[in-house]
């Protein structure tokens, strides 16, 4: 079992003819992902490595029965691409694009609330169910099939923690990077709830970072709704207030909200141990299993 993606996921890659789109489509196919179509407006009828290219997502859905999309479209056109995907009732849209204007995402968010589609991202590494499917840019070789779920706001930090797990022979059900932007489609809580309902997920890693209050809300959710044990990690303990640490969302405000301390305390209060190092997170998970 897994969450959100598996063997049956049929993927359309939006922006398949661009550099990133083409490269990562190959990587996804190599990993075993069922990529059934791509889109690139004006390039319908062509193909990329034998994968048919369509002008529109609705054609790709009609002709190839796609049920998920991965968006590799540049930031100026990314919101439009997500709207297009949402209008075709896909089950899942994974937006990799970094740098989507926040007000565009507010409009997307509004439309998203009217659909049954799940959006992951934007500005995220994607989602992987080891051995079954990879939608995004995560390096497939560090993952292993197993029963730990992982949800993270940061891409490379995900890879770090996964490698700490995999090195010990601890595999993963599904790993999701939810993205570091202020407005994202899938929150920690959405992912935690799905892991809680997945019978194969026996423990969950949650990697957060400074900024916003998502981790605090997730801690409350864990305390009230989860039996599956969760271990946490929070990046940005040494971040000074008022400085944006790379991610648009990663900033400790002048009044002191969004600090690592507040998030670690909230998680500890919810019974979630927080590792001082990524390796310590793996220690906690080992204890759970």
């Amino acid at each position: 079992m897994s969450i959100f993606v598996d063997d049956d996921t049929r993927v359309v890659v939006q922006g398949i003819t661009g550099g990133e789109g083409k490269f990562h489509t190959r990587q996804m196919v190599e990993y075993g992902t069922n990529v059934v179509a791509g889109t690139s407006p004006g390039k319908g009828g062509q193909d990329v490595d034998g994968i048919p290219v369509y002008d529109t997502v609705s054609e790709a859905v009609e002709e190839e029965d796609a049920n998920a999309s991965v968006v590799f479209v540049p930031p100026a056109f990314a919101a439009d691409a997500i709207f297009e995907a949402l209008d075709t009732d896909l089950d899942l849209v994974v937006a990799i694009t970094e740098g989507v204007p926040t007000q565009d995402m507010a409009k997307v968010n509004k439309r998203l609330s009217e659909t049954d589609t799940r959006l992951i991202g934007p500005n995220c590494p994607g989602i992987i169910t080891p051995g079954e499917a990879k939608l995004g840019i995560l390096p497939g070789n560090i993952f292993e099939e197993g029963n730990v779920g992982l949800v993270s706001r940061s891409g490379t930090l995900t890879y770090q923690v996964v490698s700490n797990l995999t090195e010990r022979g601890i595999g993963q059900t599904t790993a999701i990077g939810i993205g570091g932007d202020p407005i994202i489609g899938t929150s920690f809580i959405d992912a935690l709830e799905a892991f809680e309902n997945d019978p194969d997920t026996e423990a969950v890693v949650m990697c957060g970072e400074i900024g916003g209050e998502d981790e605090e809300q997730a801690a409350k959710f864990i305390a009230e709704n989860m039996d599956t044990p969760v271990a946490g990690f929070i990046a940005g303990r040494t971040a000074p207030p008022g400085k944006r640490m790379g991610h648009a969302g990663a900033i400790v405000s002048g009044s002191g909200t969004g600090t690592a301390e507040s998030k670690i305390n909230a998680l500890n209060d919810a019974g979630v141990p927080v590792g001082d190092t990524p390796n310590e997170v793996a220690d906690h998970i080992e204890d759970f299993l």
Binding site: S154, T156, F233, G236, R237, T238, A239, G246, T277
Partner: peptide, 21 residues
Amino acid sequence: GNGAGLVMTTLDLVDYYGGTP
């Protein structure tokens, strides 16, 4: 480093091991 979360983590570890970023 590469990626905001991992770079922040590296800063935190420098501090954790007694250094100053």
